[in-house]
Design a binder for these strands. Structure first.
Length: 886
RNA sequence: GCCCGGGUGGCGGAAUUGGUAGACGCGCUGGACUCAAAAUCCAGUUUCAGCAAUGAAGUGCGGGUUCGAUUCCCGCCCCGGGUACCA
């Protein structure tokens, strides 16, 4: 009676697949549960043990939810556009579609070997023209939508009101106006360019150490190129508000809020001395305007040339040239030293009437606010540093009452910067009738804004950090844009009925250095002529990898529909996604982009929910042990041997330190799921990944840990598959209690995604059964149902051994009978001054007064109370007895 | 710097409306079975002292609240992640 997992696991996987056991259809008579995994990029390396972690968790939830009567949608697919397949094509000439197909096949085989209950009829692939046809279709919807700020809603471009003054200027101006409102637009943009990948990348893909997220090299630089951009900032407020109603990890919500970066403040116009121009700044602290002693504009500010005086021209030009050569990275990383140059001109502080110098400095960013600031050096660290560097005046207007005397004096004298709250000083101008001295910060801000507003030189404003989303790449292996550029300059979208625009056949995948996509070489595909003979050129950029993953959860709902992206009726039934599980690395980008698209589709009436993902859960990373020498150099795992809990180098004998690190080829500590499945079985792999610790924790992989759960599964099999242990008749009372505790604990824990403790409860139950030596058939069958979501192959096998028809996976979850859980006695821990001394078993319904009597009268109490006085006795029924002595 | 997490035995980790710290598993120790080994089963296993009964200490560090703190409050230290001149 061997635990012959390899035999029966294959058998049941085949059974599930052949009988489409987990296929689901929209069925309004049942409650639905849409459970989604972040679909993988099918890399050539195959599945990693990190993948099955999230997949197993969702699989357990899905199997449990089915047993609880839900109609479960649980699909899987491939996010298969992307660079590696294309790099491989450049090196070998193999078409990316072929590589992709092969990788998908590997991934599918590996995933199926884990017994995951996906509905494989819904498998999708972002590179399939039948799929990306609809990605293009959605892009066209974005292109044809504008955002009505008043209604806070996207609307069809045909409904865009054209202002009279624009109309007067003629059709070209109208077109330009419309272009300026579309959610997708084509424009010259200063973009990050990766010399290694030969493509642009989004701001978000450039990490703050200056490396490109995709390839890891630091070969990124700034370039101006014609690019497709999406106006995601228009949805900033909606994206922010929407977070409130979502059941997401607080950290992810914080990161998104941070990324959106809402700030409230005011715009203020400053008169420029000697020019009939105003300089507009954005500030979050208009109440500190009295302390503004100079101004700074970004080197790219549009008024730089106008403002700069003849005398300063050379200096300014040199500075701007130098600033342009610096990447954003240099600008920020070398932030210790502030740089800048005087323009030679002054602005007028509207509250003090004083002339304040206008400087140019690259610590002011062109893309945020108005690209110009009023500097309040006394109360802003950056302004203070700059003022000290260039000897500019510092006027304190907030008396730091909380600071210690030395610091306070320095702040008041302008020798230190104070960024906390304080009491206004020097903040009145009787001539103007403005005085905020003595006011609270809140009143100060609103008073100044009110004053500025009355005079038409300022108003309250909201600003966001989030920028337009760079949405094109100069690569081959991505969705082509359904766009044609005509020779007369017009841009038009491909008609819906002509979608998809497929990728041209080519054998040149190498992108050009100039920012030309490989598609530009596909002459035949490239050239188009319309009905009236006008010549056009197809868009040669392709979409970024985010595109396909922005809406895949919608396609799963109706994956074979060739008339529309999905049926509205089905969408209405299945959406939103009830549980979405994936890695935290997608906390901002994928999840924000996807929410943005979804909101546009919602505004257009294409989807029925405002948000796509109701509950989000991030599984933690699975790491591995690695070894390093005292000097800190890494040693590959094959050169390490263990002796008495210590680790040594097999060749040098040097003692090594065990550390936890990411699995990597270079450390030779990568675990391949295929190996685990063949040595211990899929159920062991599933169970171990769930037993390692909380799902959201990062935790190291250990082989002995796998053996531990493998051992448990063997124990389950040996006991429950041995019909000698399975008897008829009445079940033992303790066993019934243990069983029902287990049903309850496992059910509750699955609902809470606490799989590790659910497994531990099943181990406790199994240990109990070993002690009892036998259980009834009913108990055994019930336990098979309980373990089924975790170890489905084993559960099916046991179910069959008991002579039942498959499948145990389709049976209802056993109900908890509370009557078996009732305790009639409780072992009170009796403590003296908080230290537990002994246990006292008493009936649970014993009145408090009698519990006290019993505790004090107990023989063991005497030695603790000897020579002391009982001050009081604390009794919490069914919890504790604490006797306080003096 | 700022924003999130997190620090519990030799190891992974349990336990928080404040109520027996260390569930469960690994490892280790001992025993049973065996000619022997593997496999399996049984028992023990926070540390220190003790033959033992038992006692003392103990959840990153220092204070505090409480009959009682891993859990709450104040002040620190360390680790992981995110973010960074956003005015």
């Amino acid at each position: 009676m061997e635990y012959n997992f390899s035999e029966f696991e294959k058998k049941w996987q085949k059974y599930w697949l052949d009988n489409k056991v987990f296929a689901s259809e929209a069925d309004t008579s049942k409650p639905k549960f849409y459970c989604l995994d972040m679909f993988p990029y099918p890399s050539g390396a195959g599945l990693h043990v990190g993948h099955p972690e999230g997949y197993t968790a969702t699989d357990i939830v899905c199997r449990y939810k089915r047993a609880k009567g839900f109609n479960v949608l649980h699909p899987m697919g491939w996010d298969a556009f992307g660079l590696p397949a294309e790099q491989y094509a450049i090196q070998t000439g193999t078409h990316p579609a072929i590589t992709t197909q092969k990788n998908c096949d590997t991934f599918r085989r590996q995933i199926q070997s884990l017994g995951l209950s996906y509905d494989w009829d819904r498998e999708i692939n972002t590179t399939d023209p039948a799929y990306f046809k609809w990605t293009q279709w959605i892009f066209i919807r974005l292109y044809n939508t504008w955002f009505d700020a008043e209604l806070q809603k996207g609307r069809p471009i045909s409904e865009l009101p054209i202002p009279a003054n624009i109309k007067q200027q003629g059709s070209e101006a109208v077109t330009r106006y419309i272009e300026s409102k579309r959610l997708a637009y084509y424009d010259n943009a200063q973009v990050w360019w990766c010399n290694h990948c030969k493509t642009v990348c989004a701001n978000e893909e450039v990490l703050n150490d200056g490396s490109h997220e995709k390839c890891g090299t630091k070969e990124v630089e700034r370039r101006f190129l014609k690019q497709w951009m999406l106006r995601i900032p228009l949805y900033a407020e909606r994206l922010l508000q929407g977070l409130d109603g979502l059941d997401w990890p607080a950290g992810v919500k914080d990161m998104q809020r941070n990324w959106i970066g809402k700030s409230t403040g005011a715009e203020v116009d400053f008169e420029i001395d000697g020019l009939n121009k105003k300089l507009k700044v954005y500030t979050t602290r208009p109440d500190t305007l009295f302390g503004a002693t100079y101004m700074v504009i970004a080197p790219e500010h549009e008024l730089v040339n106008v403002i700069t005086t003849e005398a300063q021209k050379v200096d300014v030009e040199n500075y701007i040239k130098a600033a342009a050569l610096k990447s954003d990275l240099d600008r920020t990383e070398l932030s210790k030293e502030k740089t800048g140059v005087f323009t030679g001109r002054y602005a007028i502080n509207p509250l003090t009437g004083k002339q304040i110098p206008i400087w140019i400095a690259d610590y002011v960013l062109t893309g945020y606010g108005t690209g110009a600031i009023m500097a309040v050096p006394a109360h802003d660290t950056r302004d203070f540093e700059f003022a000290k560097t260039f000897n500019l005046p510092v006027v304190c207007i907030l008396d730091p009452k909380e600071a210690d005397d030395t610091l306070r004096e320095k702040v008041l004298a302008g020798d230190a910067c104070w960024t906390e709250d304080g009491a206004y000083i020097n903040s009145a101008n009787p001539v103007l009738g403005l005085n905020i001295n003595g006011m609270s910060k809140q009143d100060g801000i609103s008073t100044v804004i009110g004053w500025l507003g009355d005079r038409g030189i300022g108003k309250a404003t909201v600003n966001f950090k989030i920028r337009d989303w760079l949405f094109s790449r100069q690569r081959y292996w991505g969705e082509p844009f359904p766009i044609i550029h005509w020779e007369d300059g017009e841009i038009s979208v491909v008609e819906d009925e002509n979608l998809p625009v497929e990728l041209p056949k080519t054998d040149k995948y190498q992108p050009g250095d100039s920012g030309e996509s490989p598609l530009a070489n596909a002459t035949e595909w490239l050239q188009v002529v319309d009905k009236i003979g006008r010549k056009g050129r197809r868009e040669t950029n392709t979409m970024p990898q985010w595109a396909g993953s922005c809406w895949y959860y919608l396609r799963y709902i109706d994956p074979k529909n060739d008339k529309e992206p999905f049926s509205k009726v089905k969408e209405n039934y299945w959406m939103p996604v009830d549980l979405y599980v994936g890695g935290a690395e997608h906390a901002v980008l994928h999840l924000l982009y996807s929410r943005f698209w979804h909101k546009v589709l919602f505004d257009l009436g294409i989807v029925s929910t405002d948000e796509p993902y109701q509950k989000l859960y991030n599984q933690g990373m699975i790491l591995a042990f690695a070894y390093e020498t005292a000097a800190g150099s890494k040693v590959t795992s094959d050169l390490v041997e263990e002796k008495d809990g210590k680790y040594f180098h097999t060749q040098t004998g040097e003692e090594l330190k065990q550390i936890v690190a990411k699995m990597s080829k270079s450390l030779k500590n990568v675990v391949n799921p295929d190996d685990v499945v063949s040595s211990y079985g899929a159920d062991s792999l599933r169970l171990y990944e769930m037993f390692m610790g909380p799902l959201d924790a990062t935790k190291p992989w250990t082989e002995t840990g796998v053996k531990g759960v493998y051992n448990f599964l063997k124990r389950v099999y040996y006991f429950f598959a041995d019909t000698n242990n399975i008897v008829d008749g009445e079940e033992d009372k303790e066993t019934l209690k243990a069983l029902h505790q287990t049903i309850k604990k496992v059910g509750d824990d699955v609902e809470d995604m606490k799989f590790n403790t659910a497994i531990s409860q099943m181990m406790i139950f199994t240990n109990h059964c070993y002690k009892m030596k036998k259980v009834t058939r009913e108990t055994a069958e019930t336990f098979a149902k309980v373990i089924a979501p975790f170890a489905p192959h084993l559960a099916e096998e046991l179910w069959a051994i008991y002579g039942n028809e498959p499948s145990v996976s389709l049976l209802p979850w056993p109900s908890v009978n509370e009557k078996f859980l009732v305790e009639d006695v409780f072992a009170y821990p009796v403590s003296f001054n908080g230290k537990t001394r002994f246990n006292l078993e008493l009936p649970v319904d014993m009145p408090v007064a009698e519990v006290e009597k019993a505790a004090l009268a107990h023989e063991s109490s005497a030695r603790w109370m000897e020579g002391k006085q009982v001050v009081k006795v604390v009794i919490v029924p069914k919890k504790i007895v604490n006797i306080v002595l003096k």
